[in-house]
Design a protein around this nucleic acid. Structure first.
Length: 600
RNA sequence: GGGGUGGUAGCUCAAUUGGUUAGAGUACCGGCUUGUCACGCCGGUGGUUGCGGGUUCGAUUCCCGUCCGCCUCGCCA
């Protein structure tokens, strides 16, 4: 077997005159007839041209070269020389070529379903790419992503190690605690009738590691949530998970800011400035989102006070609504003329768009060149024109979009509309890295159906130090010590200071409707641990896949995972999930409720 | 669970109002080609139009069901 002396991306003019051996895949072949054949040989490092010349190569080598086809796996040995023809400036190796003296075919590629070609691959159905993932991953752009991901992992381990974190593994087979996301379950053979759950996160284990005196823990771990995927979400995903003892939220946020700043410098050479903090209520009121995209304007204005004066029935009805101490409101977005013009078709479509988020519709009006209101609800606004324009700082030519409803619905719908408008007008600038901390989340949200409070983050999140009294007096107003890191409108990390006192933890369990017995059964080990000298602690988890998505500039999470799953949770390459034998089920003490599917 | 969208040659796509033998590029096969580089030229193989049913003289096209991919709402403590 021929052994490589260089990789395909390596050869340069300085190697000319050496005998070299390259291994790789035939990227393209160009048969010039009568014994002149060019090949581009590809490995993970790049491309190098191989030439077979009748005058220099024995006939059997030319014949071998001629028989090669795309994606055959071969080795070529010969003289590396300066090109006889013109150099190819598109290739790093474009000044040289390998004159084949010997060709070893490791394996032919038969009936390729797809070519691993960056020219064509973006057009190929993802279904096919996933089925033949080994071919899709051969593409240079996919190879690059895999290696970028590796660099992120390397930097992560280096950074946290340098900050005196210890990497500690936590179990994959744990028990189900059906708060939050749906668990993946695994039947226990040794405990008939009992089930393990796969972890949604190592949350409780890392807290217990703090009780255990580890002080600084991190782990790059797989987490599993049996919920429907999205473009940026998979049921099986990776987190950079960490926890620290003897810290307040600023300590955690500082360490984490340092991490992303170092990572962006390492990966992209970008200096990320000090990451600003925004309270949750500000984020919601100004951007209609708990993960604001601050790369562009179009901020939300609250015009509730004015809206009540214009006699528009929809506004009056919205303002009369109230929930959790917040009255209904009217949120406005001013689309400046300088940002581009919204067509009638666009504004019409916005009514349907906001209905997705339970809002009734969008009220529209526009300021004409002469400063009068026109179209839409102009006649309602005209009587308060001066006040209205002043409140919004609106100029002639601007379009104003308004959403009225319950506060939650109005801000959410207006926030989504803001993103939609920015997208429609192509107003999101490229090349910006807007990091942001969102802090001061509410501890709880009220679930009308269940008639109980639910933890907004998770039930182990501590209230802010000055908020403990509110736990009892006014849970809805209680603000937590949680924090999310947001990048360009995408949540890339979340965490909190945890509750480290048993009495507080029990209070929170009670508030979210857990009885003492429930709490003991599900989380007794945590309550017990807290009782035995738990230090104050807090932590965070980064979505690794999302970090890599940002760093690689893709908005498809499947592009940054070597073997991802589809929207229905399937792996198209190995054809999972699949049926199992009755025998296996019997061993696991599981009986079928659904008939076995016929084999495909 | 809901909404949207797509499925035609190995791959990417086309096919008029429901109408002849379902076409093109690429890949593959054969021939030609000694400086190409996404080589070029000539010829060829290749189709259960996702699957099942229905309407019709006739269905890629219309209807019903179903499977699969993608986007999305719910969901994601």
């Amino acid at each position: 077997m021929l052994k490589r002396t260089h990789t395909c991306g390596e050869p340069r003019a300085t190697h000319a005159g050496n005998t070299v051996t390259l291994c790789g895949w035939v990227n393209t072949y160009r048969d010039q007839g009568k014994g002149l054949v060019f090949l581009d040989l590809r490995d993970r490092d790049g491309l190098c041209q191989v030439v077979c010349d009748l005058e220099d190569a024995p006939p059997h080598v030319v014949a071998a070269a001629r028989s090669l086809r795309r994606e055959d796996c071969i080795a070529v040995k010969g003289l590396l020389r300066k090109r006889a023809g013109d150099p190819n400036l598109k290739l790093a190796t474009g000044e040289v070529e390998l004159l084949a003296a010997e060709i070893e075919v490791f394996n032919k590629a038969i009936d390729l379903p797809i070519l691993p070609d960056d020219h064509d691959a973006p057009k190929i159905n993802e279904e096919i790419r996933l089925k033949y993932r080994y071919l899709d991953l051969r593409r240079p752009s996919m190879q690059k992503i895999l290696r970028e991901r590796h660099r992120v992992l390397q930097y992560t381990r280096q950074y946290f190690s340098s900050q005196r974190f210890t990497e500690i593994e936590t179990p994959l087979l744990i028990k189900s605690t059906p708060e939050g996301a749906r668990d993946f379950l695994v039947p226990s053979r040794l405990h008939p009738g009992d089930w393990y759950a796969l972890p949604q996160s190592p949350q409780l284990f890392k807290q217990i590691l703090m009780v255990a005196g580890c002080e600084r823990y991190f782990q790059i771990c797989r987490c599993l949530r049996d919920e429907d995927p999205r473009a940026d979400r998979q049921a099986e995903f990776s987190q950079i998970d960490l926890e620290l003892s003897f810290v307040d939220r600023s300590d955690v946020m500082d360490v984490m800011s340092g991490f992303v700043q170092g990572l962006w410098k390492e990966m992209l050479g970008v200096d990320v400035p000090t990451i600003i903090r925004m309270t949750w209520i500000d984020a919601m009121n100004r951007f209609g989102s708990d993960k604001p995209d601050t790369r562009f304007g179009l901020e939300l204005h609250d015009i509730s006070a004015l809206a009540g004066k214009c006699g528009f029935k929809v506004f009056d009805e919205a303002l009369a609504k109230s929930r959790l101490g917040k009255s209904g409101c009217v949120k406005a977005i001013v689309v400046p003329a300088s940002m581009g013009q919204l067509t009638r078709k666009m504004t019409d479509s916005y009514a349907e768009f906001v209905k997705t988020f339970k809002a009734g519709g969008v009220a529209v009006t526009k300021i004409s060149a002469t400063g009068t209101f026109e179209t839409g609800i102009a006649k309602f606004v005209e009587p308060i024109a001066a006040e209205f324009k002043a409140a919004l700082n609106a100029q002639p030519g601007d379009t104003i979009l308004m959403v009225a409803d319950h506060w939650e619905i109005a801000v959410k719908a207006a926030g989504e509309l803001r993103l939609k408008v920015a997208d429609d007008l192509k107003a999101v600038p490229a090349g910006m890295w807007n990091f942001l901390w969102v802090i001061d989340f509410p501890m709880f949200d009220f679930d009308e159906e269940g008639n109980r409070w639910v933890a907004m983050h998770h039930p182990f999140t501590s209230p802010n130090p000055d908020q403990f009294d509110l736990l009892e007096s006014d849970p809805g107003a209680c603000v937590s010590a949680g924090y999310d890191m947001v990048l360009n409108g995408s949540e890339i990390a979340g965490g909190s200071i945890r509750i480290h006192r048993t009495d507080v933890q029990e209070k929170v369990f009670k508030l979210i409707g857990l009885t003492q017995e429930d709490a003991d059964r599900k989380f007794g080990f945590l309550l017990s641990a807290l009782r035995h000298g738990a230090p104050p602690h807090g932590g965070m988890a980064f979505g690794l896949d999302r970090l890599v998505m940002h760093l690689c500039g893709t908005n498809n999470i499947r592009d940054v995972i070597a073997f991802p799953k589809t929207q229905s949770g399937g792996d198209l390459m190995i054809d999972a999930p699949g049926p199992v034998d009755d025998e296996q089920l019997k061993e696991l003490h599981v009986r079928r409720a659904v008939a076995q599917k016929a084999p495909a």
